[in-house]
C-alpha cells in the first residue's frame, strides 16, 4: 500500500528519515517546476526547493489537514519563498534551460520548442499575481481548491486570476509577428 503524503509527513516529523525521503522524492519535482516556471531561473528553483523542504522539517507541524493537501501546503511555502525572491530581484535574469533536439524531425522539433519557449517567456512576463495562478492551474495541473490554499485566496479569485492571466497571454503572444510565432500559428506545430 502506498503511504499518503500526510502519513509520510507525520512519520517524517517523528524523525523517520525514510518517510521524509519518500515525501521529498514524491513532491520535489512539482515544487522545483513551480519555482522554475515562476522565476525562469534554475538556480533560484533549486534554492526554493531546498528551502521549502527545510521549512517542512522545521514547521511541518503547522500543516492542517482540514485546510488542504500536503502538496498545496508545499506550494504555499514555495510560493512565499518565490515571491520574496521576486521582491528582492524583480528583474532577475532569466536563464534558458538547455534544449535537446532529437535527430528525427529536427525542424519540427525546433519549431515546437521555439513556440514553447515563447509561451514560457510570455508566462514569465505576467505580473506575479496572475503568473502564479497560470503556473499552478495550467502548468502544474493543480485543482482550483489546492491553488486557492497555496495562494491563500478564495477559489473564485483563483478562477478570475487564471482567466485574466490567460487573456494577457493571448494578447502578448498575438503581439508577436505571425511568422509562425503567434498562438494561432504555433498551434500548428504544437
Amino acid at each position: 500500500m502506498i503511504a499518503t503524503d500526510q502519513a509520510l509527513l507525520e512519520q517524517a516529523l517523528e524523525g523517520v528519515e525514510d518517510a521524509f525521503t519518500a515525501l521529498y522524492r514524491r513532491r520535489q519535482g512539482a515544487v522545483y517546476r513551480f519555482a522554475l516556471q515562476m522565476t525562469g531561473s534554475t538556480a533560484v528553483a533549486e534554492d526554493v526547493t531546498q528551502e521549502t523542504f527545510l521549512a517542512l522539517i522545521l514547521h511541518g507541524g503547522r500543516y492542517d489537514e482540514a485546510r488542504g493537501t500536503v502538496g498545496a501546503f508545499l506550494y504555499g511555502i514555495a510560493r512565499n519563498l518565490v515571491l520574496r525572491r521576486l521582491d528582492r530581484n524583480p528583474a532577475a535574469d532569466l536563464e534558458v534551460t538547455e534544449d535537446y533536439a532529437g535527430p528525427e524531425d529536427l525542424l519540427e522539433d525546433l519549431t515546437r520548442r521555439e513556440s514553447i519557449e515563447q509561451v514560457r517567456q510570455a508566462v514569465l512576463s505576467l505580473p506575479p499575481v496572475f503568473r502564479e495562478a497560470v503556473v499552478l492551474c495550467d502548468l502544474q495541473d493543480s485543482s482550483y481548491e489546492d491553488a486557492a490554499v497555496a495562494l491563500d485566496c478564495p477559489v473564485g479569485t483563483v478562477r478570475s486570476r487564471l482567466s485574466r492571466g490567460r487573456a494577457m497571454l493571448v494578447r502578448k503572444l498575438r503581439g508577436a509577428a505571425c511568422t509562425g510565432r503567434s498562438i494561432e500559428c504555433s498551434q500548428k506545430s504544437i
Binding site: R33, F53, I116, V119, R166, V170
Partner: peptide
C-alpha cells in the same frame, strides 16, 4: 483561450520531467 490552454499544456509536458538536482536531496536529508 483554447489555444492558449493547449500551448500551456505543451509547455507543461515539456517541463514534466524536470526535477531538482540530486545535491538538493543530499543537503535536505
Amino acid at each position: 483561450e483554447e489555444h492558449i490552454v493547449a500551448a500551456l499544456r505543451a509547455l507543461a509536458e515539456e517541463d514534466a520531467e524536470l526535477e531538482a538536482p540530486l545535491r538538493v536531496e543530499d543537503r535536505v536529508r
